[in-house]
């Protein structure tokens, strides 16, 4: 149990450091790569918390698809690929740091006061039970969310198509 504790603390440290790098690095590609690190450490944390199916979905959907989409977005919008100082809004920096630190302070204060239990790191797997629940009790939201995904896909294609007569006429 002691080894697992040390591993978890190390994972949380890596998570926070790579998260900070995502918002502070001046290189667009590096930010996407550090987001990959953040998500990968989150997936390992999920495996430690006996949620291995969620961890696999996180790796497949986020690291497999979303990051590729982001890199395409960076390439298509021709963001400067090297380090560039124009990426941050320097005027907002102090205000943003104050706001985020105060949100963090309030959250930490409340969380430390409210929760002091210990997580039971169970040794079993939860995938079989998760599949049964997902296809019995949550089958309607499951189908609904697949239609949301289909609608988003069609909407994204329609928005991003170039040979659309409507877009050509309504140039803003």
């Amino acid at each position: 149990m002691e080894t697992l504790d040390i591993i978890s603390y190390f994972l949380l440290l890596v998570l926070l450091l790579s998260g900070i790098k995502v918002v502070t690095t001046s290189n667009v590609i590096h930010a996407a790569i550090f987001l990959v690190f953040t998500l990968a450490t989150t997936a390992i944390l999920f495996i430690l918390l006996a949620a291995e199916f969620v961890a696999l979905v996180l790796i497949l959907v986020y690291i497999g698809a979303v990051i590729v989409l982001f890199l395409f977005g960076v390439m298509i919008t021709r963001a400067p690929l090297g380090p560039n100082a124009e990426l941050d809004n320097d005027k907002n920096k102090i205000f943003a740091a104050l706001l985020s630190l105060s949100i963090f302070g309030i959250f930490t204060f409340i969380l430390i006061q409210t929760f002091d239990s210990t997580v039971v790191i169970s040794e079993g797997t939860s995938t079989k039970l998760l599949g049964e629940i997902l296809l019995s009790r949550f089958v309607f939201p499951f189908e609904l969310v697949s239609f949301v995904l289909l609608g988003a896909l069609i909407g994204g294609i329609t928005l991003a198509r170039k040979d659309n007569a409507l877009i050509d006429e309504d140039q803003i």
Binding site: L16, G19, I20, V22, V23, V28, T77, A79, E86, L87, D88, N89, N92, K93, F95, A96, A97, L99, S100, L101, I103, F104, F107
Partner: peptide, 12 residues
């Protein structure tokens, strides 16, 4: 909070 900071600071 890191995400909030990023939303407020980033320009792209």
């Amino acid at each position: 909070s890191i995400g909030i900071y990023g939303i407020l600071v980033r320009r792209n």
